[in-house]
């Protein structure tokens, strides 16, 4: 199915909202589960949007900006997954792989912005020196304006204006390539998880990681809640043990001090 001008504009306007949200990280409507759903709503296929949202959210599960690197933009990936699935009738799982180039493009634009916007900081410094609050606030507004325009243009072009060449591209693709994208959709979360592990994992935490893994392997349940509850159990056990250890440590320190001042050696045990 093709996309009308009104739908293209609607998607682009939503892209501005979701894009700004991904810039500010406030309402999290930039996450695929929301951006796919809204894109589906705009295209009149809510069910497709919801399903694609679930699948894309899973694919993005481990990809967080917290590790310091910017992952492919989830807002753009979400919107384009639904657009591609809607216009070319490929399965949502395949569409995720096909939408990744667009999400990478947005990511590169944002990386460029992060560097370029450094030049605005001296302007804010000068305004701060003069206590000129109006000039001071013009910089954040300008920056958010530039970000909005970028998201509008990227989504409008790739969903509406360049829709036909895109569809042709997908049709021209051989089956092995599409299957390859599908595989990538299943394998890419591993990159995200590896990034999380790089930040979080220390040897003492490996048991918990394996525990969660084994639990999810053998408990046939549709979500990770059982593993989360087991995680809470261990977190609580550790929490109370830490507290107790801290108290014991303090007592030991006190006794040591008392022992040193008392000078008695026999109560050292």
């Amino acid at each position: 199915m093709s996309i009308t001008l009104a739908q293209g504009l609607g998607l682009a306007i939503f892209a501005v909202l979701a894009g700004l949200d991904s810039w500010l990280e406030v309402f999290y409507i930039f996450r695929p589960i929301i951006s796919c759903t809204i894109a589906g709503l705009i295209l009149g296929d809510l069910r497709l949007g919801v399903i694609a949202g679930g699948l894309t959210e899973l694919a993005f599960a481990g990809l967080t900006p917290a590790g310091g690197t910017q992952p492919p933009n989830p807002a753009v990936c979400g919107i384009m997954t639904v657009v591609i699935a809607h216009t070319t009738n490929v399965a949502p799982a395949t569409a995720i792989g096909l939408s990744l180039p667009f999400a990478m493009l947005m990511q590169y634009i944002l990386l460029m912005f992060y560097s370029i916007f450094s030049v605005f900081m001296p302007v804010m410094d000068k305004a701060a020196k003069e206590a000129d609050t109006k000039k001071f606030s013009s910089v954040p507004f300008l920056i958010m304006g530039i970000v909005s325009i970028a998201f509008f243009v990227v989504i409008f072009l790739s969903s509406y204006a360049a829709q036909a060449p895109m569809a042709a591209l997908v049709k021209a693709m051989p089956a092995w390539l599409i299957h390859g994208f599908e595989l990538a959709g299943g394998a890419l979360p591993a990159v995200g998880f590896a990034m999380l592990l790089k930040v979080l994992l220390r040897v003492e935490y490996v048991p918990y990681l394996l525990l969660g893994f084994v639990v999810a392997c053998f408990i046939n349940f549709s979500n990770v809640l059982p593993a989360a509850v087991i995680g809470i159990v261990f977190a609580m056990i550790e929490f109370f043990r830490d507290k107790k250890n801290k108290k014991l440590q303090e007592q030991i320190d006190e006794m040591k001090e008392a022992g040193i001042s008392g000078g008695g050696e026999e109560d050292g045990i």
Partner: peptide, 15 residues
Amino acid sequence: IMGLTVIGALISSYV
């Protein structure tokens, strides 16, 4: 600890 338990579970269900 909580995070890693969940990540372990997610690796098995998402990848």
